[in-house]
């Protein structure tokens, strides 16, 4: 996700630890860092969440405004997700329009939310063919220590779950909670050497080859996947990722409630 030269000594140390199934911060291979969620932290947003995943920190806000539906889906609300890797979050992030990393991040999070049907967009119609609710999810990385994918997914999902449609503000009836049907959770791993490790930190990402992300829904079905990174994974490794995504996804779902 960024380019910084890591010392060979640090790289060797991480590799040596992994050979014994250990990690720099004392976690096991499949352990997720501590998740902290603060919802409704931004009053100007219609839904918001600030999420900490270890030292990685992400804020997401939802804005819901009336707008014109797309021609081919005249009765269906609009959902868009954007992400920015702002330079506040890491010395290697630069200001400017979202680059390919930010766009990939936004699209992977978007797919999980969209394909799981988390937001019931059919209930977002105001006047068929004319007016629907448009739901914008904006995600900002504030502090980057690896695994922005899962942190951003958690922040976006928690922000949506806390969102209220501000109907009164626009004279469209009573305010109601955004219709949410499920909680899609992504689980990202990276491959370092021949080991797949869950919830990588910055250093682990730097020396990794492949980065599979698997998003599941509440019943453990798969809703989105992405293999990022220049490396490859075997079919057996993929199978391991799928099993872990279901198991760890369920745990995380419990944590965020």
């Amino acid at each position: 996700m960024s380019n910084e030269i890591m010392s060979e000594i640090k790289r060797d140390h991480i590799m040596n630890l992994l050979a014994d199934g250990k990690r720099q911060d004392g976690r096991g291979i499949t352990d997720v860092r501590e998740i902290k969620v603060e919802t409704n932290c931004i009053e100007s947003a219609d839904g918001s969440a600030r999420v900490k995943l270890g030292k990685t920190e992400v804020i997401a806000g939802v804005k819901i405004i009336p707008g014109t539906p797309f021609g081919d889906t005249p009765n269906i609300g609009v959902l868009t997700t954007g992400a920015e890797l702002i330079p506040m979050a890491h010395p290697t992030f630069e200001s400017g329009p979202p680059g390919e990393d930010a766009i990939e991040l936004a699209r992977v999070v978007d797919r999980g939310i969209r394909e799981s049907g988390m937001v019931d967009v059919e209930k977002l119609c105001i006047v068929p063919g004319e007016e629907v609710w448009m739901c914008f999810v904006d995600i900002y990385a504030l502090d980057y220590d690896g695994n922005l994918f899962d942190a951003a997914n958690l922040a976006a999902v928690c922000a949506l779950k806390s969102a209220i449609i501000p109907a009164e503000q626009y004279g469209k009836g009573e305010n109601t909670p955004l219709p949410v049907t499920c909680t899609p959770i992504s689980v990202t791993e990276v491959k370092v050497g021949n080991t797949l490790i869950v919830d990588p930190d910055y250093d682990e990402e730097q020396i990794s080859s492949a980065r599979p992300t698997v998003t599941t829904d509440d019943v453990g079905n798969f809703r989105a996947m992405q293999k990022g990174g220049r490396g490859s994974i075997t079919l057996d490794e993929l199978s391991l990722c799928l099993d872990r995504a279901v198991e760890i996804g369920a745990e995380s779902r419990k944590i965020i409630g």
Binding site: S44, E84, P98, D138, Y140
Partner: peptide, 17 residues
């Protein structure tokens, strides 16, 4: 210095950038 308003910081969504 770079001053940036996040999209959800104001009552109408602010276009990023």
């Amino acid at each position: 210095c770079k001053y940036n308003m996040q999209a959800f910081s104001v009552s109408d969504r602010k276009r990023p950038g």
